[in-house]
């Protein structure tokens, strides 16, 4: 469903010169899988997801999403995915209804399709009471629900969720985690980035550990427990980081 081959991103910084945000990375995510990308801030999670969503163009390497090339078939890729991140905010002066209508039209849905899908999502996410209020008047949790509805309006097969619980309170985070789990149960392919180890542990079939723009390993949570000494994903992550920094220092 998702495949990358040596995908790499380099930014130019005036002070530091070339900054490698993501070193050549190869990975594949299977259909119906919940794939976690776990790493601290600045690890390269957002860059990876942005490249997969064709928002950023890779400096090198190639990739496919739902069989579409991320370099030459950007629109097809975008039609196949629902992308949500902490950076994908909503228009404050519009109401959730207006936002959903707008994005529905941009996804090429017909009026009836938009109406049906909108009703489904309003029910699913409990948005009835604030659907006609301006977004700037909504709480963080309500806004996040609208964001999810916005990203999934066209019922994509692949969800790309970049830290979807970042900055949310415990209750809202929990409802979002449950929503993701429910969608995984419906057979959706989900690539999910987080720096909360517990979320990755609860949700993901497989987890990629990302640190300083490099994938340290990709495995199931069980696989990590078998290979490492740590009792949870957090300790396991630190084992990998220590090992990787030791390797870098040696080399």
């Amino acid at each position: 469903m998702i495949r990358t081959e040596g995908i790499k991103k380099v930014f130019w910084d005036k002070k530091e010169g070339e900054v490698v945000a993501l070193h050549p990375t190869s990975l594949s995510v299977n259909e119906g899988e919940v794939f976690g990308v776990l790493g601290p801030n600045g690890a390269g999670k957002t860059t990876l997801l942005r490249m997969l969503a064709t928002i950023l163009t890779p400096t090198d390497g190639s990739g496919e999403v739902n069989g579409y090339d991320i370099l030459s078939q950007k629109e097809e890729v975008k039609s196949s995915i629902g992308f949500l991140s902490g950076n994908t905010k909503l228009y404050g002066r519009l109401t959730p209804t207006e936002i959903l209508n707008y994005f529905g039209e941009l996804y090429g849905l017909g009026k009836e399709e938009i109406r049906v899908r909108k009703e489904e999502l309003i029910t699913l996410l409990n948005m009835e009471e604030f659907i006609d209020k301006k977004v700037e008047k909504l709480s963080t949790g309500q806004t996040q629900k609208v964001s999810i509805a916005r990203a999934l309006l066209h019922d994509p097969d692949i969800y790309m969720l970049d830290e979807p619980t970042l900055g949310l309170d415990i209750l809202t985070s929990k409802s979002i985690i449950e929503f993701i789990r429910g969608e995984a149960g419906r057979g959706k392919t989900i690539i999910f980035s987080t720096h909360y180890m517990e979320e990755a542990e609860v949700l993901c079939d497989r987890v990629a550990l990302l640190h300083k723009g490099r994938i340290l390993d990709i495995d199931t949570t069980e696989g990590y427990y078998n290979k490492c000494q740590g009792n949870n994903l957090r300790d396991i992550f630190f084992e990998y980081v220590n090992k990787s920094e030791g390797d870098i220092n040696e080399s």
Partner: peptide, 14 residues
Amino acid sequence: ERGTLETILTVPIK
């Protein structure tokens, strides 16, 4: 500033 530019870049629009 409001972070809505990235939102619009995720949809299939040239």
